[in-house]
Amino acid sequence: MTAPLPRLTAAQAAARLGVKPQTLYAYVSRGLVTRERDARGSTFDALELEAFAAGRRRTAGRTPTHPTTGMPLGIVQTDIADIEDGELLYRGRRARDLIDQPFAEVVAWLWGAERIDAPDTAIGSARAMVEALPPHAGAMDRLRAALTGFAADDPLRHDTAPTTLHRIGWTLLTGLPVALGGDAQLDVARSLAGAWDVSDGPTVRAINAALILLIDHDLAVSTFAARVAASARADGYAAVGAALGAADSPLHIAAATRTSRLLTQVRRGREPDRALADAVQDGNGIPGFGHPLYSGVDDRADALFPLLAQLPDGEGTMDAVTRLSDTVAARAHARPNVDLALAALASGARLPDDAASSIFVVGRLAGWIAHIAAEYAEAPMRLRPRGEYVGP
């Protein structure tokens, strides 16, 4: 007999929605959510609650007073990326139309700056920082350590001129994959793949496509963090460090690793609904599904999925992706986002679960540098908001 799926207690359900228990029961009385009652009290279906939470966010997004809508403090103009009719554009060009070009060529076009490879001394400093970490250190730990090594080796980093910032950007894009264990290569995607000892053509092609698709995506929290630091005239390394700090969070880039772990469970034979019920227990949503900027499938995921069937373990991976997607569509009405595509890339290429985060960061780094350059051209400290005291 199959064991029942894990369910949320009333306290867990209220915490997930960010409401008081009284409000939760008001939702029940209005038929918005369902509950089961037994001798232990009321319990709630975790996936149904996720669907309800997502629906509240979409509706509340038109209500500035709602505390969880993510309403912006202001509008920051950008000419880097845009999303129109469900498609991601870079400076007016569809991102998916660029994925067959080498990542470095797309970056050179985006920045308007020719490639400069990282100095050997800087790579040595970064690699030493990474190697000093304990064995259990994760991908984001290694990336932060490498960033520190590159910054410490650059005595000219404090100049905010575009030429210096682009030199810093190229140093990181060409040097980070090597510092993480890859070989120096003209092809950034091939160099990054080497960090995991893989070199087959389909995997390199998929990583290259992912890097391009992840360059920029509206004003994500990590991108805004980079711009805030740049507004205070932090150097390029420090501004990227601010972005990394914001990125290492369960609702941003770290979600890719959460999604990889979910997909791994399904690949190992666990039923999708049980794996999903466990995955949402942390209250951070369904990893790999749903995005407020898309009404359907995330455009980046849609562009990446067709490349994954050709990976060494692509067929089994895409079968798991399909079973997960069907379950979430039926139970929570959410569609795949780029985190699921990255998790599938890591699974199909037999990479570590946290490889998805590394790919995400290296790709997004190109966008961070573009935004930092744009912010340097603005008045300093313009992104310093004023607080409104509401205490006693």
Results as ranks from 00 to 15, higher is better:
residue 306 P to K: 04
residue 387 G to K: 15
residue 311 L to T: 02
residue 367 G to C: 05
residue 369 I to E: 08
residue 376 Y to N: 15
residue 357 S to W: 03
residue 386 R to H: 14
residue 363 G to P: 04
residue 314 G to P: 11
residue 376 Y to S: 15
residue 357 S to H: 02
residue 379 A to S: 14
residue 364 R to P: 09
residue 297 V to M: 12
residue 374 A to F: 10
residue 314 G to K: 11
residue 319 D to C: 08
residue 319 D to R: 08
residue 351 L to C: 11
residue 324 L to F: 06
residue 336 P to H: 06
residue 298 D to R: 06
residue 311 L to N: 01
residue 340 L to A: 02
residue 342 L to A: 05
residue 365 L to V: 07
residue 335 R to D: 14
residue 324 L to D: 07
residue 361 V to E: 00
residue 338 V to W: 00
residue 324 L to A: 07
residue 350 R to D: 09
residue 363 G to Y: 04
residue 302 D to N: 10
residue 298 D to K: 08
residue 388 E to Q: 15
residue 310 Q to T: 06
residue 349 A to P: 09
residue 356 A to M: 03
residue 389 Y to I: 15
residue 362 V to L: 07
residue 368 W to Y: 01
residue 379 A to D: 13
residue 358 S to V: 11
residue 366 A to V: 08
residue 315 E to P: 08
residue 349 A to S: 10
residue 316 G to F: 00
residue 308 L to M: 04
residue 361 V to K: 04
residue 345 L to N: 03
residue 371 H to K: 13
residue 345 L to A: 01
residue 306 P to W: 07
residue 331 R to T: 08
residue 304 L to Q: 09
residue 309 A to F: 10
residue 382 R to W: 13
residue 372 I to S: 06
residue 355 A to V: 02
residue 371 H to Y: 13
residue 341 A to K: 03
residue 303 A to S: 06
residue 380 P to N: 14
residue 377 A to F: 02
residue 384 R to W: 14
residue 356 A to W: 05
residue 370 A to L: 09
residue 338 V to R: 00
residue 307 L to A: 00
residue 299 D to S: 13
residue 299 D to K: 06
residue 318 M to I: 10
residue 312 P to K: 13
residue 329 A to N: 04
residue 345 L to S: 04
residue 377 A to L: 11
residue 386 R to T: 13
residue 349 A to L: 07
residue 339 D to H: 02
residue 304 L to H: 11
residue 312 P to Q: 12
residue 344 A to H: 01
residue 374 A to N: 14
residue 340 L to G: 03
residue 363 G to K: 04
residue 343 A to P: 09
residue 314 G to D: 10
residue 371 H to E: 12
residue 302 D to T: 05
residue 364 R to K: 09
residue 328 V to M: 02
residue 383 L to Y: 13
residue 351 L to K: 11
residue 304 L to F: 12
residue 378 E to V: 14
residue 377 A to I: 11
residue 332 A to H: 02
residue 311 L to F: 06
residue 323 R to S: 11
residue 335 R to Y: 14
residue 369 I to Q: 05
residue 379 A to L: 14
residue 357 S to R: 02
residue 297 V to H: 11
residue 351 L to I: 09
residue 342 L to E: 10
residue 322 T to I: 01
residue 358 S to N: 04
residue 296 G to P: 03
residue 377 A to Y: 08
residue 389 Y to E: 14
residue 353 D to L: 14
residue 384 R to I: 13
residue 370 A to D: 03
residue 325 S to Q: 02
residue 308 L to E: 08
